[in-house]
Design a protein around this nucleic acid. Structure first.
Length: 181
DNA sequence: TAGGCCATCTGGTCCT
DNA sequence: AGGACCAGATGGCCTA
């Protein structure tokens, strides 16, 4: 079903990798699951399913062949740490999703959508704040106001250079996300 | 069925 | 030396 597509994805690999995989494919199937049980238990459900189906991933095969005694345990521990790290990253993404206002839909924002929206949201807020504060800046004499003025000039210049219309861009994106859902 | 998105594994590199 | 970080590879799930 997906073999064609997966094959096309695999074509991105280098010829060296293809050669290695070809050789590994010739390995006896009985060795495929060695060392994969622990990571299976530690891993998420999605990964578990693939292994439940009896599919030995190339990753597992690589693991099989890179296994030095003791190194295997270290690898599994490293995998677990990496999983935890990615979970933290995903939690941060979730927090970011909740921090930026967007049209509520059943479909959650993808990571790229979240980052793009957050970027433009920050820019739009910056533009608004600076716009609100700009009124009192010209007559300011204190150092604090002077800094604010510099800040305002800096961002104004930045916005001019980017010329992307942050606020309208942000609103446009929200609108497109709404339509896309 | 193709494409998008995601989770996981892995080896390399950087950092402490 | 070992952990953190990163990017590539891969397979699963979902949707148009």
């Amino acid at each position: 079903m997906k073999s064609k597509r997966k094959a096309s994805k695999r074509n991105r690999k280098t010829s060296v990798e293809n050669d290695q995989e070809f050789q590994l494919e010739l390995e006896p199937a009985s060795s495929d699951h060695e060392g994969s049980e622990k990571s299976l238990n530690l891993g998420g459900k999605r990964r578990k399913k693939s292994i439940d189906n009896g599919m030995a991933s190339s990753a597992n095969r690589r693991k099989q062949h890179s296994g030095v005694k003791g190194g295997n345990v270290r690898r599994l521990e490293s995998n677990e740490r990496e999983r935890q790290r990615m979970h933290k990253l995903n939690n941060a993404f979730q927090a970011l999703r909740e921090a930026i206002p967007h049209v509520k839909t059943e479909k959650t924002l993808s990571k790229i959508e979240t980052l793009t929206l957050a970027n433009n949201y920050i820019k739009s807020l910056t533009a608004i704040i600076l716009g609100m504060s700009s009124g009192c800046l010209p007559h300011a004499e204190g150092e604090e106001s002077s800094n604010a003025s510099k800040l305002f000039q800096h961002y104004q210049q930045q916005l001019e250079e980017e010329d992307d219309g942050s606020l309208s861009n942000y609103l446009t994106q929200i609108h497109s996300f709404r339509e896309g859902s």
